[in-house]
Design a protein around this nucleic acid. Structure first.
Lengths: 211, 211
DNA sequence: CCGCATCCGGGGCGATACTG
DNA sequence: CAGTATCGCCCCGGATGCGG
């Protein structure tokens, strides 16, 4: 990116990560951990492959990611965040927090979705306010992706994964799942959104804001 | 900006404020308060005038700024952040915090500077750890700009302005002032950087990290 | 002087095709 | 799997003009 030519911390930061797609690449590495080139392509629907390659080169030069050649027989390249790159997490968290109203407004026509994108919004909305009770594990089937919601000791976490014996199951479109989890739509009305919940409804109440 | 087409909070946020210059316009309005078009141009050296006009239109449409026609006889337009726009402050704070190392590295050749850009870095570094002592007011003469550093009741604030009877005065290049305030360069060595301090040195120690 | 609109050249970006 | 190559377009940068 062409520099803004301003001796200002925010401008200098944007000199490095202000290019199109750059922060979203960091998002992928933050949410999914180490990624192969193909994983990144899949997590960044719409990016042109030459742009992804160019951004990865720039991010490596800037010391934000590191490229690691996995040892044989797994001949492949893995991209991981450096410490400096991981330090971008608060930036993306705040950006995501600010962007939540646009998710609540619903997806635009043709919007793509990946399950792990829900992690920050959901962790934002939910809160385990019965930390002494036994842990909960809820299976989320959102869009095409399987996610796991873990709540234990006051912390709520969302990660990709599948559960064979979940304490409860919530499935539906990304919009519907978000609406239900956030408590914006009561569980009883979830069906109208196309979302289905099976399990003890008290489990969800443990996590949702008391409002 | 062309949408990323992703149903993700961070991507949606970047759809709105990811355009070049956009976040820096918000920075100006956060740091300086309401601004006229010309104030913004001055605070954003390098921006093309058509781009500024276009961004302001987009930001207005997005509900991030509001345009206010000042009543006669002050025939002029004032741009101010809406509540939604002011909610971007944490994003810019984190971005600025992450960018501080690039300021510590020193300005690039030809970098422009405005005094108010120092506000976040300085408030980041300093901390009034003698909140019960009487307030301090230090005059900063940084580059061409006059700034005021207020410390009172545990809070440190930096704002544009001039003091006739400051408790102390610090002047020098932006780089030197930042180096001295952050404590990275001891006050005794400030002269070598071209910075001059007059007043009780204990005043600064009250604000700097104990390290 | 303030707040733009217009015009134009160059480069970043998007989409697709192709390759070791 | 991990990119490179190519090409068209549109965004951006810089200059200038212009009405209120």
């Amino acid at each position: 990116m062409r520099s803004y030519g301003e001796y200002c911390a925010a401008a200098k930061a944007l000199d490095v990560v202000g290019d199109r797609w750059t922060l979203l690449i960091v998002r992928e590495l933050l949410l999914r951990g180490d990624c192969r080139y193909t994983d990144l392509r899949n997590g960044l629907p719409g990016i042109a492959t030459n742009l992804l390659a160019e951004r990865l080169r720039e991010l490596e030069r800037a010391g934000i990611i590191a490229r690691e050649e996995a040892p044989p027989p797994i001949a492949t390249t893995v991209f991981r965040l450096t410490e400096r790159g991981a330090a971008l997490e608060p930036v993306l968290q705040e950006l995501g927090r600010w962007g939540i109203p646009y998710m609540v407004a619903g997806p635009a026509d043709g919007d793509e979705f990946r399950g792990h994108w829900l992690a920050w919004p959901v962790e934002q909305f939910l809160d385990d306010h019965e930390p002494r009770n036994p842990p909960i594990r809820i299976a989320l089937r959102v869009g095409e992706d399987d996610m796991v919601l873990d709540a234990a000791e006051g912390r709520v976490q969302v990660r990709p994964g599948h559960l064979d014996q979940p304490d409860a199951t919530l499935s539906g479109s990304p919009y519907a799942v978000l609406a239900v989890l956030s408590g914006r739509v009561p569980l009883d009305a979830a069906g109208e959104l196309g979302a289905t919940f099976s399990g003890d409804k008290a489990l969800l109440r443990r996590l949702q804001p008391k409002a």
